[in-house]
């Protein structure tokens, strides 16, 4: 049976490198997903994943409470992402991010569907400001509770609820017309060609 989080975190704080690797394996997907969705760039997300765990390793003495490891890790990742977004704002992106390779074993139609859905989600997230995007990503991808999101973003639960509410209204504005497209206007009856009537005499 694998050790639970608090035991691993205690061991990690005491310098056990195996515990660190176990924690990395446990949380790398979540951190990578968060970075990928915040930056909408998988290559940059890979770099930030590395940066986040390297910083966690270097500053493990700052982790005081073993129960808040996940929030602490996401706080590091969040700071990295916000820095990257700020930096990106000053730079011109030079290449679009690479598309996700198709999942092995899935049907071509399934891959196409997933690719379209992923594209739609990415475009929707791209339209949100970073402060709205981060609460959506933490909630929808990482399944964090309101309390955990508040801890990561250093705000209150009511602020988290308010930001989620506004972000979801924007998501609704984008998705609702696609889900329920208005029926096309009824086709009009073709009018008979108007011909000049010539009086018959």
């Amino acid at each position: 049976m694998p050790p639970d989080d608090p035991a691993l975190i205690d061991a990690f704080r005491n310098g056990d490198e195996y515990a660190f690797v176990a924690l990395y394996d446990r949380y790398k997907g979540a951190v990578y997903g968060y970075c990928a969705k915040m930056l909408l760039d998988r290559t940059a997300a890979e770099d930030l994943l590395q940066e986040t765990f390297a910083r966690a390793y270097e500053h493990r003495d700052r982790l005081l409470n073993t129960t808040s490891f996940k929030a602490w890790l996401f706080t590091i990742a969040r700071n990295q992402c916000l820095n990257a977004l700020r930096k990106r704002g000053r730079e011109v992106p030079f290449a679009p991010h690479a598309p996700e390779p198709p999942s092995p074993g899935a049907t071509p139609f399934g891959n196409l569907l997933k690719s379209e859905q992923a594209d739609l989600v990415s475009r929707t997230l791209e339209m949100l400001s970073p402060s709205y995007r981060e609460v959506v990503v933490l909630r929808e991808y990482q399944n964090l509770s309101y309390d955990e999101i508040a801890a990561v973003t250093k705000t209150t639960v009511s602020s988290v609820k308010s930001r989620l509410f506004k972000a979801r209204r924007q998501i609704g504005q984008i998705l609702r017309p696609r889900l329920h497209p208005d029926p096309p206007p009824p086709a009009r009856e073709p009018r008979p060609a108007v011909t000049a009537s010539t009086p018959t005499s």
Binding site: K37, Y141, G172
Partner: peptide
Amino acid sequence: DALLAFRLAARQEPL
């Protein structure tokens, strides 16, 4: 419906 569709699409995406 929109929120559920977004969640479904988000969670089906391989990451």
